[in-house]
């Protein structure tokens, strides 16, 4: 049974004037324990919205449909009531920009221990001991738990945010661009830490990023999102060496390669508007392999090997 499975997840945002923005248009994901899935795509393609929806954290202006299965049970169905007991104990999150993820007027330790107390796992002295353990786990001295967030550096704060996410020993970790706004050295450290911890603790992790090399480096699997849909998903190796969707190939071509001599090629055009229905393939106007059916028919879901899926009319790879 998958640690986390997302089936046909949709998110709509209400817009003024009664219109709707279809931000996430039916995505499917599945993760086994210990797997790391990189969720990549351009800004505004729905990555962050999708993982916020998985924890029921979207604002009231959003409506969500689909199923989010944690160890087989749907946590999305009953709204906040069924979601709340699972938050942080089964599925936790490392937020984008840990700068502001901590309350500035409470100590870091206090905030790490907070979910422990909420879930009845530890309180008082036991919670302090556990908090110190968690901080040590991410390489911060346990004594620093009485410090305030502003007394931590950016990298330390991000590590403390990871320690906080691990507090209740969740089975699934959602990391929303955990390394943006950090310098390259610290980025590498944080990434290494996440890889080590998911290996040691058998966590399933979804890593949201727009940084492809980071995915190749850290993730076992990848899902490429475009305009609210999954363009292609498979192992990182498959996506890199045998992409089925032209968007995946073009994304890799747009990434500078340290060893390669190929020129970096950008993808012309811009993603489609999500507040109007799209006919055919949403990537068709920007695609270099577009042909007959692309403009008129929504691409079918196709698979070549188990677990390697794409939504594209092309047969035989991009």
């Amino acid at each position: 049974m998958s640690a986390l499975a997302v089936e046909d997840l949709h998110v709509w945002f209400d817009l003024p004037g009664g219109r709707e923005l279809h931000a996430v248009q039916g995505i499917d994901l599945a993760l086994e324990p210990g797997e790391r899935l990189g969720l990549v795509g351009e800004s505004g393609c729905g990555k962050t919205t999708a993982i916020l929806a998985m924890m029921g954290l979207l604002p009231p202006s959003a409506s969500v449909a689909g199923r989010v299965l944690l160890a087989g049970g749907d946590i999305l169905a009953g709204g906040d009531r069924t979601m709340r007991p699972h938050r942080w104990t089964d599925i936790a999150m490392v937020f984008q920009g840990a700068m502001n993820a901590f309350d500035p007027v409470r100590t870091v330790g206090d905030q790490i221990a907070e979910p422990l107390e909420r879930a009845g796992l530890a309180a008082g002295r036991a919670a302090r001991t556990r908090t110190a353990e968690l901080l040590e786990l991410v390489g911060i001295s346990g004594e620093r738990q009485d410090r305030y967030p502003h007394e931590f550096s950016g990298g330390m704060r991000q590590r403390a945010a990871i320690a906080m996410a691990l507090a209740c020993e969740p089975k699934v970790l959602l990391a929303d661009e955990p390394t943006t706004a950090l310098d390259v050295m610290v980025q590498a450290q944080i990434l290494e830490l996440l890889v080590r911890l998911t290996d040691e603790l058998g966590l399933a992790m979804v890593l949201v990023t727009h940084d492809l090399p980071l995915v190749s480096q850290a993730c076992t699997h990848a899902a490429v999102m475009y305009a609210g849909r999954i363009a292609e998903t498979g192992t990182t190796r498959e996506l890199h060496h045998a992409p089925l969707h032209p968007y995946t190939r073009m994304l890799f071509e747009a990434t500078p390669d340290l060893r390669g001599t190929d020129a970096v090629r950008s993808i012309p055009g811009a993603p489609p508007r999500l507040d109007e229905p799209t006919v055919g393939c949403p990537f068709q106007p920007r695609c270099d392999r577009a042909f007959g059916p692309c403009a008129t028919t929504r691409p079918p879901r196709r698979t070549t090997e188990p677990g390697h899926l794409t939504h594209c009319h092309l047969e035989g790879g991009a």
């Binding site: 924890m55 954290l57 709340r84 007991p85 699972h86 938050r87 942080w88 104990t89 936790a92 999150m93 937020f95 920009g97 502001n100 993820a101 901590f102 309350d103 500035p104 007027v105 409470r106 905030q111 907070e114 979910p115 909420r118 879930a119 906080m164």
Partner: peptide
């Protein structure tokens, strides 16, 4: 603020979020 979203993700109830995080700030 972002830390309110964090507090919600941590499974705190609305009242706990207001009392422990939003009010003091």
């Amino acid at each position: 603020e972002d830390y309110i979203l964090t507090a919600r993700a941590k499974g705190l109830s609305n009242w706990q979020i207001v009392r422990r995080h939003a009010l003091r700030n």
